[in-house]
Nucleic acid binder design. Structure first.
Lengths: 206, 206, 206, 206
DNA sequence: TATGAATGAGGATTCATTCAT
DNA sequence: GATGAATGAATCCTCATTCAT
């Protein structure tokens, strides 16, 4: 790629994160050693410690970057009225975020265990619970609560489960989103979704 | 229950598996050391090596035990006609298996990475793909394929996602199963499910 | 000394302590690496960890062995009447203990800092304070308290300070003891020491 | 005291020495890292290297500063007649020096080991030997030599041993000095100390 | 005067594994 | 069936030091 050592000046921190992300996602946090990361970057292990205080710090820094879009979506959701439309929009936005951040989510799933001793409120699990709490109505019938929850999780699992199905990625995303929105609608019997807002096209992820 | 140290004679292998299962599920395979397992059993590390050739052997032995019910279900499914009813029964049976084996599945999820270098066809992922292939129809519309897939995965994710919701476990299971069966039915427009077979009660998990 | 590897079976723990003692006394705890200890014993570093949980554990184990005679002396002193004679006997016994345990005390002095974060009551300093509290009378005039304290410390410092003076070690010890007993007597004006008990000969330190 | 960051310009070298002194005295030389020193000064480690060539250089520079008063006292002593009065004056001056430089001496004691590979004649030990050689008479009886030695060392040990005794510091100093002078006098039987020169008051330590 | 970025050597510690008994 | 003692390789991490800027 023509990236000579000189051209790399100042971006070492970023490069560490990139490589770490890649390896953590591939092999998991525990199995990835700092030696491996350092070697791939052609720096010494000690150099990593100039940029991050501990190995876990690298993990956390990655996680925080990855969690930000989720946090923003949660913030947005909390400020909206608790209507079906809001929930549908949440799901739609989540679908888009997921599409452009699939490796990140893969990374997060691989490394849930390694992150499970974070401060409460800081884990992926906590964020997912927060998310589902925006979607489900605690007074609804249990099956309807399940439908709401599942609108969210279906997007995760289906995307992964469909990786070996041959089809256009955007088509797959729309198919999954359709099912998610369907579940959501079924979870709200008697309510009417906003007309004219379907699955729609994803914006460019530039 | 009267299991004195003497009474344990001969079941050390089983006890190792139990403890390993517990710890692997809790902290993951990589983070769990043989020292930890040995200490909890009050034996020496060397004793473990009398029963298992390597650490990975413990993992594999656990995995094989856990995978057997899944394999049996797959075998059964393969011998049935590819009808909606078969699929519904698959989902029903899966739901029951899941209920009595939740820790096992938790264990499997935690340790996917550690098992990913197994022979092809031996991983959990492979079995899940096989399972979804029994459920989905490759010629159906994409959203309907998603619905079929999701019938399966919803059972996983929802059960975990509902852990912090207060309700009777059996009620939760039925609610989840209802949604799964619903998805399946919706994935087969025009077909009619066998009447008189609803969510039903789970058999005793003796 | 003809100590073949075979002859060493079972005494590795002791040998670690011996070598550690030697090196800690010579270079101090911090400057001594486990590699050094292991190499001198011709075992691996990991072998050390079979016998001691941490490096500090080695230090503590040494310290406890060394502190025992001191503790015994303290115990004895606490059970005696608080008379001048008792104090004189304490000093006499201390002098003897010191003579046969000089390397140990050298070791302790070298490594005070490394041990300073022990539990209260566990440090050398605490024991010395306890010792001086047996010797001095808090109601006496300050200079007399100083004399009592000094009876103890003089034995330490003088022995070290006299190392480069040529004389028979036992003569040196007696000379120091004489001064210590003198200080003690002067600290108790008006009291009469037990007659017939002078500096005397040290018992064999076999 | 109005020492703004700006006011500190140019005294960085001094500030490094101050912080190093503090930390070396507290934790010892080996346990104190340059990172620690730099952080406490809010500069980079590299900045330390502008002022000192190595870590050991800091130690040596401190030691030389601290040793100067001792060297001056030694020089003075060497030029005086070898009388009891000279010795008494040496002890008196030493007592005063000690009082205003207690942390320094604490520092030196902590870090004897670290300095033990200095050129001969450069160590604290060497100076203490020189000092005792001014005090003791090699032809005197051994116990009298011990008394002379101890006159010096008592001042060290007693001051530290009395730290946990409640009393006015100046009173303590005088008490210790009295004992030291006493020891000296007793070491010179038949000689008469200069009359009218007792323990006296310490000069201001400006 | 200082810093930012890095290095090389070495630190303590842990791990899975082995083997004679 | 199990232990006691040990190993070799790897781990994360810290340190004093350097040097271009």
């Amino acid at each position: 790629m023509g990236s000579t050592p000189q051209a790399r000046r100042g971006d070492t921190r970023q490069r560490i994160q990139d490589v770490a992300m890649e390896l953590f996602a591939e092999q998991g946090y525990e199995k990835t050693s700092l030696r491996e990361i350092a070697e791939r970057l052609d720096v010494t292990k000690a150099a990593l410690y100039y940029h991050f205080k501990t190995k876990e710090d690298i993990l956390i820094s990655l996680f925080q970057d990855l969690a930000r879009p989720l946090d923003e979506l949660l913030d947005w959701g909390r400020q909206q009225p608790r209507t079906l439309e809001t929930k549908q929009e949440l799901v739609r936005r989540y679908s888009v975020a997921l599409q452009s951040a699939l490796p990140l989510f893969r990374f997060m799933q691989q490394n849930q265990a390694a992150m499970s001793h974070l401060r409460p409120g800081e884990t992926l699990k906590d964020r997912m619970i927060a998310m589902t709490n925006l979607l489900r109505d605690p007074d609804a019938a249990l099956p309807d609560q399940v439908r709401s929850l599942s609108a969210l999780f279906v997007m995760h699992t289906a995307i992964f489960a469909m990786q070996h199905i041959e089809a256009d990625p955007e088509d797959k995303r729309k198919a999954v989103l359709e099912v998610a929105l369907d579940l959501l609608a079924q979870a709200h019997p008697g309510e009417q979704a906003h007309p004219g807002e379907g699955v729609g096209d994803a914006p460019d992820a530039s």
